[in-house]
């Protein structure tokens, strides 16, 4: 009930002629104001601040080699984070995305090395399997009405188990010869280029497509969206499919770069980093609000923190503590800056 007076119904009700619309009703907003009002503004400030801090306080932070390392670290977080941002916006979460990131490269390895399939065919089959895995997550969640926290926690352990069983707990060397290997991950910048491409696609899906609006509607007002004609169940299932599939794809790229498959990693670290990136970027855990740009900047913040502290030689015991405290600080700052900005612009509007 902030400004009821701004709703103006025209003329005397008996008058059949419509009142001419007031001219220039939607004033163009100033560009600076449009930037500050964006949800990503606060986390962007944090990212720039951290970058400047490490750039000025160390000599090794700014440089070709470190940027390669940095981007390779944050690429998987950015992609899985984008998938999580979509799911969180739909009011769900996927705890198994990190495990999909680790497991589906194994499927790719079995198909190429054991079955002798060509690289492209193996990728397609691995991704279709990942999509079916996401569909299972989505169907369990929506059709059986289970919380996605529970379904994906279960599928996380199950998928990890399948990885242990099929690999017998042993590491594999993944060698992809020729151009395929370079495209997939061996070229220094290929992983970050893959990540950039995927993030752009997910951005278009969430913020520029019909499906994206339906994701927001399903997470923002489930009943209302259904009344308005949105097929909410179908929308949520496809959101799970999207998250698993892109996690699997960036997983295959990451494994190709490392040339190593390690069943000792269950992917939960990647999953938590990804959710943290999405949330510090401005995506709400409660659904209805999400930003892919924010999740991407969030992954950059985590990357800068991780890499910067490594370069500064922070003690390994302190490392994890400082990382956690920094994530909390970034999150608090993000919320506070956003609030201050909104208050400021509201006061101007009055």
């Amino acid at each position: 009930m902030a400004e009821p007076a701004t709703l103006v119904t025209g003329g005397p009700p008996a008058g059949p002629e419509p009142v001419p619309p007031p001219a220039g009703r939607a004033p163009r907003r100033l560009p600076i104001r449009r930037i500050v009002e964006r949800r990503e503004a606060a986390i962007f400030v944090v990212a720039v601040g951290l970058f400047l801090y490490f750039a000025l306080s160390t000599t090794a932070f700014v440089g070709y080699n470190n940027f390669v390392t940095l981007t390779q670290f944050l690429a998987p977080i950015a992609v899985i984070g984008a998938g999580e941002a979509v799911l969180l916006t739909a009011g769900e979460v996927d705890l198994s995305a990190g495990t999909a990131f680790i497991f589906f490269p194994f499927v790719f390895y079995y198909l190429t090395t054991n079955e002798g399939l060509p690289v492209a065919a193996a990728i397609i089959i691995a991704l279709v399997t990942a999509a079916l895995f996401g569909m299972l997550n989505g169907m369990l969640t929506t059709l059986l009405e289970l919380p996605s926290f529970v379904t994906t926690l279960g599928s996380l352990f199950a998928l990890d188990g399948i990885m242990e069983i099929t690999s017998n707990g042993t590491q594999f060397n993944l060698v992809i010869p020729g151009a395929g290997g370079s495209i997939l991950g061996l070229y220094s910048w290929s992983e970050v280029l893959w990540a950039l491409g995927l993030v752009v696609v997910v951005y278009l899906i969430l913020h520029r497509s019909r499906f994206g609006i339906h994701v927001v509607a399903s997470g923002g007002n489930l009943v209302g969206a259904a009344e308005a004609g949105v097929k909410t169940t179908r929308v949520k299932i496809w959101a799970f499919v999207l998250c698993s599939t892109i996690s699997a794809l960036i997983g295959i790229v990451d494994a190709s770069r490392l040339s190593l498959l390690d069943p000792g990693n269950d992917g939960t670290t990647e999953m938590f980093y990804a959710i943290a990136a999405a949330v510090i970027g401005g995506t709400a855990l409660t659904g209805g609000r999400g930003t892919i740009v924010g999740a991407a900047i969030g992954s950059v913040v985590l990357g800068i923190l991780y890499d910067g502290m490594y370069i500064k030689g922070v003690n390994a015991y302190w490392f994890q503590f400082i990382l956690g405290a920094a994530i909390l600080a970034a999150m608090v700052l993000n919320v506070q800056l956003r609030r201050a900005a909104v208050r400021h612009w509201r006061s101007l509007r009055r």
Partner: peptide, 21 residues
């Protein structure tokens, strides 16, 4: 509808086209 069936997080123009974008 009595509950209006609007999505609070979406701008007005998206709500006006919800389900028929």
């Amino acid at each position: 509808y009595q509950d209006l069936a609007l999505v609070p997080q979406l701008p007005i123009y998206y709500n006006l086209f919800l389900g028929r974008e």
